[in-house]
Design a protein around this nucleic acid. Structure first.
Lengths: 205, 205
DNA sequence: TGTACATCAGTGAACGCGCGTTCACTGATGTAC
DNA sequence: TGTACATCAGTGAACGCGCGTTCACTGATGTAC
């Protein structure tokens, strides 16, 4: 067998995948995007990755650990997405607007992943230190953006929590289809968020 | 032992249960309260009700239909609970405070049921007309309470949605343990909500 | 009033399914000499 | 440099489990006569 043919052979039937951990996570995100949480099983994942059903156990001790890694990837992606949107904002108010729009759009566009991240699927955060760390980094960053200018530490924290709650709630309601932006005459999530944040402008500027 | 389960026990040796539909729903609420969504299977339900595993099919065509009935019961209970709390409120602001506190406490105390009601478990609202009707009645009633006094229909609707989003988000974050009232120096959900609603007092009075 | 009978709520065994996980194994790869 | 060998990523068959659902049936009940 020539070198070229050998490479072909190896590519097609290669025994070692070479990048299985990342491929599994990518496949998981893909399944979440196209089929939803109910179909996210280790077996489907292995199948989608073209690998035997026991292979994932090389990288994850159990399913929970894999789900934690998926959630972690989600938090990291959302954090970066928010950062990209927020970094060019000039004012606190604009930061808050862009943050909320990113957060809500993520929930709508990637609903099953969002649910995995914010729901109860992954059992215990303490069992997954790297997830917990990513989680902490994420919430730390959004807290930073959300912080208003009011005097007093407690008030700032309170406003942060209010905005975060609002953000989470609108994301949930819009993602679950309980609410549509058109219901209140908004053309887009961005418009909708701008009007919402305007209610708080006194506290933000 | 809950009332429902005690009744089941007493009727254990009767061939005809007599009240199976209601007992199944009660058992479902009980399982949700004690074990969570993952354990809510038709088989567990039948077992808890002291009946064969095929018996539920006398009253429900499939699992989805049963879950819809459970969700419906949840909406009805929450609606009544809110009504009880709100009916003695004097001002719009007080109404909103009590509504939000009821909603949030329900989410915290009965998290799995809340998730069933607001999540994606029950496939399609259109398939379950009585659930859809109860659902509509529920949201109609809370919209009524939430309506602010601002001029203009659109503004009122917008404020309603904002408060609803806030309510849903705080409920979710508190129920999922992402947030604690003590984090912002509030002793209880009621305190917390009062401070939150105060941010909107200009729009409500 | 007692009896025959229709109705139907509930039984119990069985079905096939997809799941998470295990385990002895095998084939590919890197490295020491 | 070529070769022997240790390492370990991935295999494939099997396990037991709980699930939703089906189906022929049986026992209790109400009612017509």
């Amino acid at each position: 067998m020539t070198v070229a043919r050998k490479e072909d052979f190896q590519k097609k039937f290669r025994y070692h995948h070479g990048n299985l951990r990342e491929s599994l996570l990518a496949a998981a995100l893909d399944i979440l995007a196209t089929e939803g949480t109910a179909n996210l099983s280790l077996r489907q994942l292995a199948k989608a990755t073209g690998v035997s059903q026991a292979a994932p156990y090389t990288y994850f001790n159990d399913k929970d650990e894999l789900l934690a890694a998926v959630a972690q990837t989600g938090f990291e992606q959302l954090r970066l997405q928010i950062f990209e949107n927020v970094k060019t904002a000039a004012t606190v108010q604009e930061k808050v607007e862009r943050l909320m729009a990113s957060y809500i759009n993520f929930a709508i566009e990637r609903r099953p992943l969002f649910q995995l991240m914010f729901g109860r699927e992954v059992a215990d955060l303490k069992k997954h230190p790297t997830l917990a760390a990513t989680h902490g980094k994420f919430f730390g960053q959004i807290s930073g953006y959300l912080k208003g200018r009011r005097e007093g530490v407690e008030d700032a924290a309170f406003l942060t929590v209010t905005l975060w709650g609002l953000c989470q709630g609108l994301a949930t309601l819009l993602a679950e289809g309980k609410l549509k932006t058109a219901d209140v005459g908004s053309a887009s999530v961005e418009d909708f968020v701008k009007r919402t944040v305007a209610l708080f402008s006194a506290q933000l500027s």
